[in-house]
Nucleic acid binder design. Structure first.
Length: 298
DNA sequence: GACGATGTTGGCAC
DNA sequence: GGTGCCAACATCGT
């Protein structure tokens, strides 16, 4: 479900609600312990209870919460000179159907809610007081990782550049060094971090490129067009709060509207909005792929 | 009721 | 290096 624009939207919402707040209580279901948590459930709960959110950021499709453990004086209820409390990462990936929503605890708990985090009361009274994790298909992942000054957990270091940060030159260089089909590369998180099936199809359409085109054979001009298409597409999608195809909602539970502006994704068999030809569906890299046989060149 | 599809990643065989 | 198949899981449409 959530690709870069959806995760970015969620992160911005969480940023308005979480930093500075302490988690009073964390509860996870057995299904979460078995399928979602990559950190043993008891350890996960123990570390988060009492910890405070320092910052929220996006890394590809991952949500990174920088957490501060309670200080010794806090946990003993004593007043001691403040010592720098140890920090750690709380990393979440929403898979296909994960949701992370911050809301008032008075709301009914939706089905498939696999974790809830009760927050210290918001002094301003505005933001929600519970963060819940809901995930129908349970493909999402959550884990804790050690904090270290000079970087992220090793697993995340393997991911490629962010599509909104990579320069045009660097994108061209990386693209033309590869023999794979271009859509496979766009989906490969080690090549670029953040694109998924929707935005891969959409930016290939915008750039007029066949998803099956071999990366190294793409002309310089068309590769440049792909870089521009990718950026403008992602920025527009973020501005529209992302695409809600079925389950996606932002950190306050609201759907996005960018799905209404998709030009190819989910439109196989319908007419191309640019030339009127029938959009075709194929399989590339094992994923359903829609393209315009007339507008998109090999 | 069966079947195939769905935004994700990761492992394995070839 | 690249591809294809399968796995996890629940739901929905044909």
């Amino acid at each position: 479900m959530p690709e870069l624009p959806e995760v970015e939207t969620i992160v911005r919402g969480l940023r308005a609600c979480l930093p500075g707040r302490r988690i009073e209580r964390a509860v996870v279901t057995p299904a979460a312990a078995a399928n979602i948590l990559r950190t043993p459930a008891a350890e996960f709960v123990r570390a988060l209870e009492g910890a405070s959110v320092v910052a929220v950021q996006r890394y590809g499709k991952h949500i990174l919460l920088r957490m501060a453990a309670p200080t010794a004086s806090q946990s003993r209820g004593q007043h001691r000179p403040a010592r720098r409390s140890p920090q750690f990462w709380w990393i979440a990936h929403l898979g296909m159907t994960g949701q992370l929503v911050c809301e008032p605890s008075s709301r009914p708990t939706p089905p498939h809610t696999h974790a809830r985090f009760e927050l210290q009361a918001d002094p301003a009274g505005g933001a929600g007081d519970v963060l819940r994790y809901t995930d129908i298909r349970q493909f999402g992942r959550m884990e804790l990782a050690a904090w270290n000054e000079n970087g992220l957990p090793a697993r995340l270091e393997q991911l490629g550049p962010d599509p909104l940060e990579i320069t045009e030159e660097e994108f061209l260089r990386r693209l033309r060094a590869r023999a794979a089909r271009v859509k496979s590369l766009l989906l490969d998180q080690r090549f670029l971090r953040g694109l998924g099936n929707i935005y891969a199809d959409e930016c290939l359409f915008r750039a007029g490129l066949r998803p099956s085109a071999q990366a190294r054979r793409i002309s310089r001009a068309r590769a440049a067009a792909l870089w521009h298409a990718m950026r403008s597409l992602l920025e527009e999608a973020i501005a529209h709060g992302g695409s809600s195809v079925s389950d996606y909602v932002d950190a306050s539970g609201q759907a996005g509207v960018f799905q209404n502006l998709h030009q190819v994704y989910g439109r196989a068999g319908q007419t191309c909005l640019r030339c009127g030809a029938a959009l075709r569906r194929t399989l590339v890299a094992g994923r359903g792929t829609t393209f315009c046989p007339r507008c998109q060149r090999r």
